[in-house]
Design a protein around this nucleic acid. Structure first.
Lengths: 188, 188
DNA sequence: CTAGTGGTGTACAGATTTGTATACTTTAGA
DNA sequence: TCTAAAGTATACAAATCTGTACACCACTAG
């Protein structure tokens, strides 16, 4: 299946370039070149740049949710440990040398809100993450699971921005401490 | 002084367009056209697109700090009321019809981190805001003012992202509740 | 009143952008 | 093995992007 290998290679390269410099800052030519593929091939697969971005976003979201889910479900120790594991996932992410923010936030910032199809995908990704947290909270009988999920997501999103803006891991540490309190209270 | 009027007009137009669609998504031609100014004039004032962006960012930051400072210092009622007033400032911002995220976050997302001059300006803006919060906390003798400032900023930045992603004002409301607790604890 | 500054209008250079056309080669599967 | 799909290489079209050139006008301060 060398075909789908090329396809995956394009998606991975595009994802990395978009994460580094945004969508409008990266041209299709560069993506093709870095993927060691011709532009013709790229267009046969994705039809347009927007089509490519769409698939990159959907793939990114599904892989992110899958790996997060796997890592959280591997944690023993009940609700608190599992909810805090989300913060560990983010800490690992921020520690990567090529970390440069969240691709969905970039989408919202470059494509004028949620009116566009791409903006909607980004919004769905954020909603999906929050729903996942709420799901765990509900499962363990936390009080006000949706509200807790919103609060924890506030901290996580804030950590993304501050990690990106030079605060390094200090932000996620502070975030984690506050989260502990909020979780304790919801489980009391 | 019709001269500086033109200059201000360009800066304002550019600011609005960049806030809507990011930096790479907006061309100099459009900025000139919307400002009712020729490209020649624009380039005489700012030298290059990057020069224009730089001035837009610096102006945005100083105006934002000035108006926030004014609004916070107008609040009577001590430390808690003043710190919570920051959240009111953000709430007002999110309620604007043309709200589409933070221009400094856009900068970090499009210009590959803080290595660049523009990224540095964005980082300075975030640091400046946090320093301002810490300043208030210190003034009123809060315990661990820097840490409190970091925590409150986490909530504020998180609120920006979620407000932008469809949660509307629910995010800032939740944010404000958590902030109240954190402030109470630091003032105890 | 005159010199300098800032602004106008138009045209253009050169690079880059998205997307396509043509003609050829490789690969995968029945 | 043969066919259809997928990939390559190169060139190109048309728009758009940043930035500049040239010639001219308007205002204001010394």
């Amino acid at each position: 299946m060398r075909n789908s290998e090329k396809r995956e290679s394009i998606l991975k390269t595009a994802n990395d370039l978009f994460e580094r410099s945004g969508f409008n800052g990266i041209g299709v030519d560069l993506i093709a070149k870095e993927s060691k593929v011709t532009k013709r091939t790229l267009y046969k697969h994705f039809g347009s740049k927007e089509g490519l971005i769409k698939e990159v976003l959907l793939k990114h979201h599904s892989e992110m949710m899958e790996s997060t889910r796997a890592r959280i479900l591997a944690v023993e120790g009940g609700a608190k440990a599992r909810l805090l594991a989300c913060f560990e996932v983010y800490r690992t992410w921020f520690g990567k040398s090529n970390f440069n923010g969240c691709i969905f936030i970039k989408t919202l910032n470059e494509f004028a809100g949620c009116s566009t199809a791409l903006g909607q995908i980004a919004q769905d990704a954020k909603d999906g993450m929050r729903a996942f947290i709420a799901e765990i909270a509900t499962e363990y009988g936390a009080k006000g699971p949706e509200k807790l999920a919103l609060e924890l997501q506030l901290l996580l999103e804030g950590s993304i921005i501050l990690a990106q803006s030079g605060s390094g891991l200090a932000a996620i540490e502070a975030s984690l401490e506050v989260a502990e309190d909020l979780i304790d209270r919801a489980l009391a």
